[in-house]
Computed example of a mutant assay.
Amino acid sequence: MRESDAVSAWLVQAAAEPADQWHKRPRLPRLLRCGITFDLVLTDTAAFRTAAALLEQYEQPVGPALTLPAIGKAAILVPQGIADKWPALIASLAWPPEAQRPLCLGQGHTIQIPGLAARGGVSLSRWVVPPEATGPYPPLLTSAGALARCLMEARSPANELNRGPNSPTGYRR
């Protein structure tokens, strides 16, 4: 996959390291700071896959998202500034106190992303939904409110996507 100029410019804003080598080495991972152009929601990979299927079912866009296989988590990019509002958003959904809550990371946190031209092999993270830009505009990010509701719904045993042979085995866009 070739990285568009709009995606590169958007990623460079959050670069935690010099980004002048990105086009020379598009396969290398990159370290990005949260809270600059995006915040990051961390949740279980299985919950993300179900939530992503629900978002598509509800015709809500699913923006850039990664899996972190070593820890069984997914990282979903949401608009910058959501980290401050996330605890109240989750509380408004009456999230069960005993259930593990998805976290939202903002300023002061970083994430290593794979290069957009990365080949297979060992990586700390893998794009499930790579960032894509339309024209000169930055990538569309997942709505935090819709994501939180779908993550809550994904937890429900009554959710038809969690039952039987039609249970999603992986999110495919």
Rank of each mutant, 00 (worst) to 15 (best):
Ile113Cys: 10
Arg155Asn: 08
Leu147Cys: 06
Pro139Glu: 00
Leu66Arg: 05
Ala158Thr: 07
Glu98Asn: 13
Phe48Glu: 02
Gln112Ala: 11
Ala75Asp: 01
Ala75Tyr: 01
Ser8Val: 10
Arg119Cys: 03
Leu55Cys: 04
Asp84Glu: 12
Leu147Arg: 08
Thr45Arg: 15
Val62Gly: 04
Glu160His: 13
Lys24Gln: 11
Ala53Trp: 11
Pro87Met: 12
Gln100Asp: 10
Ser8His: 14
Ala15Arg: 07
Leu54Asp: 01
Val7Gln: 05
Thr134Tyr: 05
Ala133Val: 11
Arg149Pro: 00
Pro26Tyr: 04
Thr43Phe: 03
Pro26Asn: 10
Ala6Val: 08
Gln21Tyr: 07
His109Pro: 01
Ala9Cys: 06
Gln13Val: 06
Ala16Arg: 08
Glu59His: 14
Arg173Leu: 09
Pro18Ser: 11
Pro96Val: 08
Gly35Ile: 07
Asn159Ile: 09
Ala9Asn: 10
Lys73Asp: 00
Gly170Asn: 06
His109Ala: 09
Leu93Phe: 03
Gly135Thr: 07
Ser125Thr: 15
Ala65Ser: 14
Ala118Asn: 09
Gln107Tyr: 07
Thr37Glu: 10
Ala15Pro: 00
Ala88Gln: 13
Phe48Gly: 09
Ala154His: 04
Tyr171His: 13
His23Gln: 14
Gln100Thr: 14
Arg126Tyr: 10
Leu93Cys: 05
Asp44Pro: 04
Ala133Ser: 15
Ala6Arg: 13
Ser143Arg: 15
Pro18Thr: 05
Ser92Gly: 13
Ala47Gly: 08
Leu11Ser: 02
Ser4Tyr: 09
Ala9Leu: 13
Ala9Tyr: 00
Ala99Ile: 06
Ile113Gly: 01
Asp84Tyr: 01
Val122Gly: 04
Ala158Trp: 05
Ala46Cys: 03
Leu28Met: 13
Phe38Trp: 04
Ala83Asn: 02
Ala148Asn: 05
Arg27Cys: 06
Leu31Glu: 06
Gly120Cys: 03
Ser123Phe: 03
Gln80Leu: 04
Pro139Leu: 02
Asn159Gln: 15
Leu32Phe: 05
Gln80Phe: 00
Val122Ala: 14
Leu55Met: 12
Gln112Met: 09
Gly72Ile: 10
Leu55Gln: 04
Arg101Cys: 10
Gly135Ile: 07
Asn162Pro: 00
Pro138Met: 11
Leu11Ala: 06
Pro26Cys: 09
Ile76Gly: 02
Leu147Phe: 02
Arg33Ser: 09
Ser8Asp: 03
Asn166Ala: 14
Thr142Lys: 14
Gln60Ser: 11
Pro168Val: 11
Phe38Cys: 03
Ala133Thr: 08
His23Trp: 10
Val7Pro: 00
Thr67Asn: 11
Leu140His: 09
Lys73Trp: 05
Tyr171Cys: 08
Glu98Tyr: 12
Cys150Tyr: 01
Glu98Ala: 15
Glu17Ser: 13
Asp39Cys: 05
Thr67Lys: 12
Trp10Ile: 08
Met1Trp: 02
Ala94Cys: 11
Phe48Met: 14
Thr110Cys: 14
Arg119Leu: 14
Thr67Met: 11
Ile76His: 01
Ala74His: 01
Thr110Phe: 03
Ile90Ala: 09
Leu11Gly: 01
Ser8Asn: 10
Leu124His: 10
Gly115Val: 07
